[in-house]
Design a protein around this nucleic acid. Structure first.
Lengths: 242, 242
DNA sequence: CGTCTGGTTGATCTAGATCAACAGGAGTGG
DNA sequence: CCACTCCTGTTGATCTAGATCAACCAGACG
């Protein structure tokens, strides 16, 4: 029961996320450095990678799974700022700015996570300008997503934001059945989904019921069926959902 | 009336914002390159530096004044995402990602703005890793600010967000009278302030009246007096306001 | 079985949106 | 100088999305 789950993977050079992560900027020799320095572990839901307010001791590479970044303010109000999945690197902001972490990273689904010591990262950064460039890209992506969410929170109501969130999940995790209906398994429980949209769980529950009654979406636990994707996208003003 | 206002300044090397802007990463020789390439103009309120959806032709350095970044969604809802002042560089995100601008940059107060062609910037970036690092810093600052605003928009009500905005303006532009009362001239008109907080102008107006009645703040046009700064900071849960 | 945790429903309350009227300048034109 | 319009901001009246509080329900688990 107290054994720390160990994970063996062949190494960074064959990591499935290698192409999408920051480390694609590194040559093989440099990659080896990380490969020996990393500590890889399977993390279970509820574990915390770092706490808001903590100093930064290194960065975390998500190989697979799901991590949530949560912000809590002085009054105790909590918001799930963003979700991060396989291939993403988190904690780099606090590292690069010598700052404390601005949010808490909590494991939402069983995840394989590599930890890399800060000194290793800073060393690589100073030698490889390309690496910094990758982090820059990453941070610009983050801004764009956050700004989008911010603007939506100010202009759209609960229903529209929920639909948007469903479509976003579908784009990442969705699948179809034999009759070409759209499905997705939301990797969050209701209260977390509510935290993400920034509403009370009760309000979320009522809105879900309404969508159900209108036939716009079918909820079954965490599984959501969307028979009429066009209508959903029309309502939230999105036209590209592949 | 149609003459474009020209601004003479001695050059980038003596620009008052040099130490705080990205260009502090450059050696004098490189700075000269920008100095000859830049186009500097006085811009009046209402002018637009770039439009949401535009391609990026270069970046803008704000030497002085005030610029607002506005996002408009498909339904026509508009949000003032952020304000940028002297020493800040804007438009770099679209440039670095070869993307279109995600927001419209509108001049809110008379501003001295330098424009630098994109090819100049990309050239400098490829030669000077330090410059990319500065942009990285900048973008991380931007995320932090946006996340803060996002979390506040989800957890705090109009009143708290207004008070927070007032304190933020005070920190940047505030002054004191002989009796040590705190004042600040808000550089926005009411409707813009409402856009920034993400509420209807009428609601803002009512909340202002309430603060006035409670004696927490004295509004006189755009000038705001805050006699009891401690009470304000206590209410929004900030303790550092210098 | 009881207990606990997460989710749904009902009843109620309120912050803030919306619609409409109005008031004070600032400019413009006679 | 006054009359007119335009523009921004304030107020009033009303409506509603969503929060809050409380009860209840179903599955997990000792």
């Amino acid at each position: 029961m107290n054994t720390i789950p160990q994970v063996r993977i062949a190494g960074c050079s064959v990591c499935p996320t290698r192409k999408t992560s920051e480390w694609c900027a590194l040559r093989d020799e440099k990659l080896k450095l990380i490969n020996t320095a990393r500590r890889t572990r399977l993390r279970e839901p509820g574990e915390v990678l770092f706490h808001q307010g903590d100093g930064c001791s290194g960065i975390f590479c998500i190989q697979s799974g799901l991590i949530g970044l949560r912000r809590v303010d002085e009054a105790g109000n909590s918001v799930l700022l963003r979700l991060c999945g396989g291939g993403e690197t988190i904690g780099y902001r606090a590292l690069l700015c010598n700052d404390e972490h601005r949010s808490t990273a909590e494991v939402l689904a069983p995840s394989v996570i590599c930890f890399v010591e800060r000194t290793i990262v800073t060393g690589l950064l100073s030698e490889n300008p390309g690496l910094g460039e990758r982090f820059l890209r990453h941070s610009i992506d983050d801004i764009t997503k956050t700004e989008d969410a911010y603007a939506r929170s100010l202009t759209r109501n609960l229903r529209a934001r929920l639909l948007h969130t469903l479509v976003t999940f579908y784009q990442q995790l969705g699948f179809r059945d034999e009759r070409d209906n759209h499905f997705v398994d939301i990797p969050l429980r209701r209260s977390q989904l509510a935290d993400m949209i920034g509403v009370a769980p009760e309000s979320l529950s009522r809105t879900i019921r309404k969508l159900q009654e209108e036939g716009l979406a079918q909820f079954n636990g965490r599984r959501v069926g969307m028979s009429n994707m066009d209508a959903i996208c029309r309502e939230i003003g999105e036209n590209s959902w592949g």
